[in-house]
Write a protein that binds this DNA or RNA. Structure first.
Length: 475
RNA sequence: GGCCUCAUCGUCUAACGGCUAGGACACCAGGUUUUCAUCCUGGCAAUCGGAGUUCGAUUCUCCGUGAGGUCACCA
């Protein structure tokens, strides 16, 4: 087989969501596992829809996920340029070949006329075929009107790497536009020219292109080209499970996930298993495992619904596997502002305690805030506590005072705190659910916090006693 | 309307035509000296319907049904 060369070819109309990244990822995996080449090409042939910042945004997204490309707009390569709007002369050359061979002609109709034809078809409940209106004789193309492909309708049978054996009849083939009246090629023409020029071996794209494939086969034939391996990926569905994941319905920018503190490895593993698995019971894959194990013949054909809960589970899992050093580095930007004056050692001990409950780093601020700042006493925490709510204020005050006295004599090593708290249980005759909850609330003012002795140890004697005093003042 | 694709627990999915349809997420219950989380144990939960082929169908065929896509000078 020839060299594997895959490309990710987005149009720069906005950010990349999980669906787009999956197409890029599968192409990237295919290239990397074959020691091939992964190419980024920007398909900016629709000037109306183009968004200026999109190019950089797409590049940053790919790189943030570690999907590095070997050739691309900002990198160059043997088939540069990799931006379609800079390749107009190339398309013109190819278009001229088709004109010369009688396989392309100037569209004589105005946009309004074509619209009328279309409405006629719709009114008769028939699919619209431009070729039914194909003019008998044509004038030379001067570039002021669309240039159309003169199709040769026929049946096709072909292989799709994911969909398997495919076939179609002549009714699906039509005279589509090759070059628009603004001089830009359509996707239908440009991608075929570019894929050929760039020696692309595998095309990966979404199911929405499936009905156009016969048209492409017809054009490949007219150009005397051998089509690359065609690969159709099933859609990634939105949270409703029906429609394709889309920006319009709130699909998140993948950079957004990165910013929220999701790991690239987690996103990659999650996205790869959206429609693919290796047949084993493995649930999480590293990038190198994916490179090793990925194969198109195990990509499913049905749509996969995007479910963030699974992503959270994968991410939390990877966070728990991180060393303290890795975790500390990863969390640098996620501390609450109140943590500003605190040193690395203190932050590291906080991280040790919150690591197992982080689903993504963006949660760090809320989970760790009480380690850095004295939160105001919140009476609800006691009145809503099923055990503590039963006790009277004087009882609570007495209990907490005893705790204060005992803690004052601890050296605040975790083991000493544990002993101290245990003997306090014996001394007061209280259940842990009561005593420990009371101390926990007084010292954290938070509904959830790590194990008590460890939390107190990290907080230190000064903060603990001060917070207990504040709580006592409220009884 | 034509053409195309798809269909297993709520979700992601596994199952050469052959064990009691397996795993994971989520959820529920119990355990680990309080909470949240982790971890462990257990539980709930699926082959869209109908024919056919077969000793045997989640798997193959056909017909329904449902969902999605497509029929642009968008990609």
């Amino acid at each position: 087989m020839t060299d594997v060369r895959t490309r990710f070819a987005p149009s720069p109309t906005g950010y990349l969501h999980v669906g787009g990244i999956r197409t890029a990822l599968f192409g990237w995996l295919l290239a990397r596992q074959a020691n091939g080449t992964f190419i980024l090409r920007l398909e900016d042939t629709d000037q109306q829809r183009e968004v200026k910042e999109a190019k950089d945004h797409i590049i940053r997204s790919l790189l943030a996920l570690g999907l590095d490309y070997d050739e691309g707009p900002d990198k160059g390569g043997p088939y540069a340029p990799y931006i379609q709007s800079e390749r107009l002369e190339i398309y013109k050359t190819w278009a001229n070949k088709l004109i010369a061979s009688g396989r392309a002609y100037a569209d004589p109709y105005t946009a309004e006329q074509v619209k009328t034809f279309r409405e006629e078809s719709a009114a008769n409940k028939l699919p619209f075929l431009y070729r039914n209106y194909r003019p008998d004789q044509t004038t030379p193309w001067d570039g002021s009107t669309p240039l159309r492909f003169k199709s040769d309708p026929k049946a096709y049978e072909w292989q799709d790497a994911v969909m398997g054996d495919m076939k179609s009849g002549p009714e699906t083939i039509d005279d589509f536009v090759l070059i628009k009246s603004d001089g830009f090629p359509t996707y239908n023409f440009a991608h075929i020219v570019d894929d050929s020029e760039m020696k692309i071996s595998h095309i990966l794209r979404g199911q929405e292109f499936l009905p156009s494939v016969p048209n492409y086969l017809n054009l490949y034939e007219a150009l005397g080209l051998q089509p690359p391996v065609l690969t159709t990926l099933p859609p990634v569905l939105g949270p409703d499970g029906k429609k394709k994941l889309s920006k319009r319905d709130g699909a998140r920018d993948v950079l957004d996930y990165i910013r929220s503190g999701y790991l690239a490895e987690a996103l990659i593993s999650f996205i790869a298993t959206l429609g693919w698995n290796d047949g084993s019971q493995q649930e999480i894959f590293t990038k190198s495992e994916l490179i090793q194990k990925f194969s198109l013949d195990r990509v499913g054909r049905s749509g996969a619904q995007f479910d963030e809960r699974r992503l959270n589970w994968i991410n939390g899992n990877l966070i728990r596997d991180m060393s303290l050093d890795e975790l500390y580095k990863a969390c640098l930007d996620y501390w609450p502002t109140e943590a500003d004056g605190y040193g690395e050692a203190y932050k590291r001990s906080v991280l040790t305690l919150v690591q197992e409950r982080l689903k993504y780093f963006g949660e760090l601020a809320e989970l760790s805030r009480f380690f850095f700042v004295d939160l105001p006493v919140n009476p609800d925490l006691i009145s809503h506590h099923k055990q503590l709510a039963k006790l009277t204020k004087p009882d609570l005050k007495d209990l907490l005072s005893q705790a204060r006295d005992a803690l004052q004599h601890s050296n605040f090593e975790t083991s000493d705190l544990t002993d101290c708290l245990n003997s306090l249980l014996a001394q007061t005759g209280q259940k842990p659910a009561v005593l420990f909850s009371l101390i926990r609330i007084a010292t954290t003012q938070s509904p959830a916090s790590p194990s008590l002795a460890e939390s107190l140890n990290v907080l230190g004697k000064e903060k603990v006693l001060k917070r207990i005093d504040q709580q006592l003042d409220c009884f």
